[in-house]
């Protein structure tokens, strides 16, 4: 630059010692502090609502249970408690301990001789794993695809959105069932199938946000300053759509748990893992309802309901933050 001929208000700064590092604001410490402030503020707004607080306590409770499952569960979830006369298959169950004084099982046992309470405790692991992993990937992939499509527009947008259209043409549960049937019944395959279908709605919404954001003058100002595409996407677009990604992530928890329970219920669940869905499935297989063994299918049903409702409530609470008009 030909700076010699022009008087600059920055001249003395540039001529001074280059080593002014001490004077410069520490970037990382500063960013950390700002992040903390923002998160603290959002946390306060979120926990302002009683329903959201209850939902969070519920999720936190199940998380603790899932983490400490081996300590809480008195027995292994898939260890037979007794052997029947016919060898392996036992069409008999023990009533919960609060119904019959002879029973030593808190929620009784299944017809296969498994301890229901232990299964319930271990089932929270599968549910939360499916819910959280699906949420992270749904929000992550959806946000990335949405931002790319919305920011670049044109052919990239067309291509990505046609893929989304294609996915929209596939019904969630039947597709997951077919994918799992093809790939084999395992928890990870169910998870994969759910993620493949779920990012579509996040991508759509984030794209529409990105489309309007990229026309905003602050993005133009960054372009004028010479910012690269990646810089604009990561610094200007992403922070402004992040609340929306969180929102879709929260809803994804609930949908994923429901889908996993549904797939497990029709018998495509992982036979080596216990989930609330597989518990419901085996109770149906042994006609627990007909025999009045309500302690077999009511507890997992309640657990599914609690976690799913909590997910929706947190999502709903977050929606009120991102969209103040809902208040």
């Amino acid at each position: 630059m030909a700076t010699q001929d022009k008087s600059s208000i920055f001249a003395d700064i540039d001529e001074g010692e280059v080593d002014q590092e001490d004077e410069n604001v520490d970037r990382w410490r500063r960013n950390l502090r700002l992040w903390r402030e923002t998160l603290a503020k959002q946390w306060r707004m979120l926990t302002d609502d009683l329903m959201v607080r209850l939902a969070m306590i519920t999720i936190a409770f199940f998380m603790i249970v899932a983490v400490f499952a081996p300590f809480i569960a008195p027995r292994g979830p898939l260890t037979r408690q007794y052997e029947g006369d016919a060898g392996i298959i036992i069409a008999d169950w023990v009533e919960p301990s609060f119904l019959s004084s002879e029973s030593e099982y808190l929620l009784g046992t299944t017809a296969e001789g498994f301890d229901i309470f232990s299964q319930l405790v271990y089932g929270s692991r599968a549910a939360l794993l499916v819910g959280l992993v699906a949420a992270v990937f749904t929000a992550g992939i959806g946000t990335l695809v949405g931002l790319t499509a919305g920011y670049y527009g044109g052919k990239i947008d067309d291509t990505l959105m046609r893929i989304v259209d294609f996915l929209y043409g596939m019904p969630l549960l039947p597709t997951v069932i077919i994918l799992v049937a093809l790939m084999g019944p395992s928890l990870w395959n169910i998870l994969f199938a759910i993620i493949v279908l779920q990012w579509r709605s996040t991508a759509r919404v984030i794209r529409s946000q990105a489309l309007s954001l990229r026309e905003r003058p602050f993005v133009k100002a960054a372009q004028v300053a010479g910012a690269s595409d990646w810089h604009i996407i990561s610094r200007h677009l992403a922070p402004n759509v992040l609340p929306l990604s969180f929102l879709y992530g929260a809803f994804a928890i609930a949908w994923a748990i429901l889908a996993e329970a549904g797939v497990s219920f029709i018998g495509l669940g992982d036979p080596n893992t216990v989930s609330w869905g597989t518990m419901l499935q085996s109770s149906r297989a042994y006609s627990a309802l007909d025999f009045g063994a309500w302690w077999w299918f009511i507890p997992p049903g309640i657990c599914i309901g609690l976690v799913v409702i909590s997910g929706f409530l947190i999502g709903r609470g977050y929606e009120e933050i991102t969209n103040p008009e809902l208040r």
């Binding site: 700064i13 280059v18 004077e23 410069n24 604001v25 960054a222």
Partner: peptide, 18 residues
Amino acid sequence: EPLRIHDIENETARIRRA
């Protein structure tokens, strides 16, 4: 932001001056 994009030194001093 513009200073970081163009790798210009003395960020804080310049911002203060501007």
